[in-house]
């Protein structure tokens, strides 16, 4: 029983991380119709910046949790303004190729600057502690991840569905020309959305650092899982991303417990099944 609970909690923690990564990805896709292959690379940058801030400069995890998303926000804004916008008129293939190329370059730069080996990030104090849940001692940090995911998900849902900004965002998705004529600066909105997506990926990277090891393959690793999340959940759907993150987080976790050799295959089998039965994903709209 207690083992079951531990794996369940592990699953929740990973689901939280997955959600943090895929939420930005699915937001940018839903809003701008751009599948950002560089998203996971930005997440990795977040983790590496965090390494530098925590392990080499300040020793303050909270500090990096505040600073890294800001850095990534700026990077995201620059990428959108000076690169992505330029290729937009050439169409989707070109946009995909650009983000793909960026991911490639970022990965190579990371290898160059930080080296092609794993780095550890340690948290101290409160987050390094444990908490007792139903009689088991559980690391505080994993609970923290899940709480972060709930907070981020909640704030995103509130902004999207309850505020004027959310109305503008959703209007820009449906009809960018019309929204433009209504006096909303759509290019600025898109830049903001892309930058926010980047900031979110940076935030996820900081969070992931202490949980998983920080190494140049981490982008590729999470990218695939995040893609599976948005395929299963449905492209551009926030609700789908939440549900699919939970399913995949738990599937990964219990997969390791029940079928150690097939744990990864389970996730892909789920994706294949969704593709066959409901190709648009659980929350996706039929085209």
């Amino acid at each position: 029983m207690s083992e079951f609970l531990v794996f369940f909690l592990h699953g929740l923690a990973y689901a939280g991380l997955l959600f943090l990564v895929s939420a930005g990805l699915t937001l940018v896709f839903g809003m701008m119709n751009v599948l950002n292959f560089a998203h996971a690379a930005m997440y990795m940058l977040g983790a590496y910046f965090s390494y530098t801030i925590v392990m080499q400069l300040t020793g303050q995890f909270w500090m990096s949790l505040m600073i890294c998303p800001v850095i990534l926000f700026v990077i995201g804004a620059v990428v959108e303004r000076f690169l992505l916008r330029r290729v937009h008129r050439y169409g989707h293939v070109q946009e995909l190729l650009l983000t793909f190329g960026l991911a490639y370059i970022i990965t190579e730069l990371v290898k160059w600057y930080w080296g092609n080996y794993p780095l550890a990030i340690n948290v101290t104090g409160f987050l390094n502690g444990t908490v007792s849940i139903f009689g088991i001692i559980y690391p505080m940090y994993r609970i923290f991840i899940f709480v972060c995911a709930i907070l981020v998900g909640g704030v995103m849902a509130l902004v999207l569905y309850k505020t004027r900004l959310g109305i503008i965002l959703r209007a820009a998705v449906n009809d960018s020309e019309m929204t433009n004529t209504l006096g909303v600066n759509v290019p600025l909105v898109f830049m903001g959305v892309f930058a926010f997506g980047a900031a979110l990926s940076g935030f996820a990277g900081v969070i992931a650092g202490p949980l998983l090891s920080t190494f140049p393959g981490m982008a590729q690793e999470i990218l695939l899982d995040a893609f599976v999340v948005i395929v299963v959940g449905g492209f551009g759907s926030l609700g789908g991303a939440i549900l699919a993150s939970l399913i995949i987080g738990e599937l990964q976790s219990f997969g390791v417990l029940l079928f150690p050799k097939l744990s990864m295959a389970l996730v892909y089998l789920l994706m294949a099944a969704v593709l066959i039965i409901k190709p648009s994903g659980l929350f996706g709209e039929e085209s």
């Binding site: 599948l35 989707h92 995909l96 695939l224 395929v231 892909y268």
Partner: peptide
């Protein structure tokens, strides 16, 4: 189609 197809080819290659 499009991005979705691209992503799926990547996923199946990984499998």
């Amino acid at each position: 189609k499009g991005a979705y197809f691209a992503l799926l080819t990547l996923a199946f290659n990984s499998i």
